[in-house]
Amino acid sequence: MKVTDLVVAASIVALALLLSYAMFLGGIGPVPVRSELRTLALNYILLTYNPVKVVYSALAPEGVTAIVWDYRGLDTYFETAVMFLAIISVVALTHGCKVRIGLGKGGMSLIVKTTTRVLMPLIVLAGISITMHGWLTPGGGFQGGATIAVATVLALVTYSIDTLAKHGIRKRVLLAMRSTGLIGIALTAVALLIIGLAIGVNAYIFQNQKRIGSPLAFPAYFSGTPTGGSLLFYNLFEAFAVSAGLSLAIIVTSLREKEVKETLRGEGVE
């Protein structure tokens, strides 16, 4: 072991000790100690699933999903749109680069391929499960979609980009899926508003359950199990959009460097 290694290790330990000592003394500002919840937090906890005060409630037992897609749904919608824009930018940068297939056998050894074949359905199933329990337990559309995208990454690494293209997982298909998901979210957001306009009743954008001045609501229960009303649809479409979007980003970033450079210089052909 070199002396420098020892010095680095000792200085890391010293930094950790000094920081914790300073924190203990209150040297980096007072640490807030609260015995009671803030009013805002208390309201969320009391109202997220509250069949008595439906006009303030999302009727979903999972607080985070309720806040993300109901109480501050508009914010989340724009977050999703920002991610969509980022992916669109990546696709635009590599516009014209075709995924060339049939360049080699590709892929890893038989052992890894077999393992992947066994695991991929399990990963997709886990992703669907996380999505479909999003309004009951921690999780949701983004997490489930990201889990499903892992299956694409696995297939890409173990089998090669050719296999993905052969099974129909192409840039254009994924972009269409991603757009469908986003349109689905937008439609869910204005669904009650459209119904309200059609039948002449008040309604709000991103409305989930009955609100003051609006009797419209998404169905909150399915055979006795809470569905969170619109949260079910948001989660489903979000999973759809995120799984397609992340898969697309991975496929685009795994394009062969030479081909991308050729296309960017204008030498490549569409």
């Binding site: 890894v112 066994v118 695991l119």
Partner: peptide, 16 residues
């Protein structure tokens, strides 16, 4: 079970 399937495949891939 999943770690059992994944552990050996990962080690094999790394070694190969």
């Amino acid at each position: 079970l999943m770690i059992m399937i994944l552990g050996q495949a990962g080690a094999h891939a790394l070694a190969r």
